[in-house]
Amino acid sequence: MILSLLFFTFSFVFYLLTALLYVGNWVFKKKWLGQTATAMSIVALFSTTMILIVRAKESGHAPFSNLYESMMLFVWAVNVGYIAMEYKYKFKVMGVFVMAFEFLAMLSASLLPYKFKSAEPLNPALQNKWHWMVDLLSKIGYEKYAIGWLDFHVFTTFIGYAGFAISCGLSIMFLLKNRAEEKGGNNFLLDAFPESKILDELSYRTIAWGFPFLAVGIVSGAVWANYAWGTYWSWDPKETWSLITWFIYAAYLHARVTRGWRGKKAAYLSVAGFAAVIFLYWGVSFILPGLHAYA
């Protein structure tokens, strides 16, 4: 508990610093600030990774079994997604929004009540390991590292969430930039944004990552439910909200096929989609009763 808390505190500070560095880079447009920000985001990623590893050691299972642990996974996935994107497209302005978001996520995780945080052994319904993997790893004596549907289900779902989070940020940037472009004139801060066309495209690309991962998450959840309870779909609030989210993003993807729905309308759909994700993730756990009450 102590060690993972230590890394949590580190990460908390790192994300704040990283966000500030990206803001500095955005406002002052200094190359060294940008480079330091990128380096810092990698340090923060390392620290977040350590939270997950240490946490797994402390609890004896993959750290995906309560709200706090899943938050750490979420923060981790968003950071990985962002770094990959920055490396590929070289736009550092996104970092301002992504890292500020990461910091807020860390803040909200730290404010969670204790019962959502403590490292607990897995209850019967959450114990699931793939036989083939246990068999394979037991040959070299590492069977306790085998994973199962729980791990796969949570991991893929959160990659999806991370994609949607980044896409939502990009869509908001698009809306700001688009308005500035329509109005014309110069804006000291918005000029640093990539063109709205590019933001629109990038937002689409991240959803194109998130959408299949959410689908894999839903399907693996169904496979697992079929093992644990004997039905693959029971219209539990979490299941239903995941489907609602999926419908919204499906609408987004189809909307892009027609020209008229690109740009603004697509951006609004993307923001609406992420609002649904937030409710799916937090709202359902806190407000609506159901099978996913633990996370």
């Binding site: 239903t240 909200w241 609602i244 419908f247 919204i248 609408a251 189809h254 909307a255």
Partner: peptide, 22 residues
Amino acid sequence: LKLTLGVLITLAVVSIIGTVIE
């Protein structure tokens, strides 16, 4: 495609009802 968008968004919205009403 308008039908697709209409149905998808309608489904998303009405599905909420069943998660609020037990």
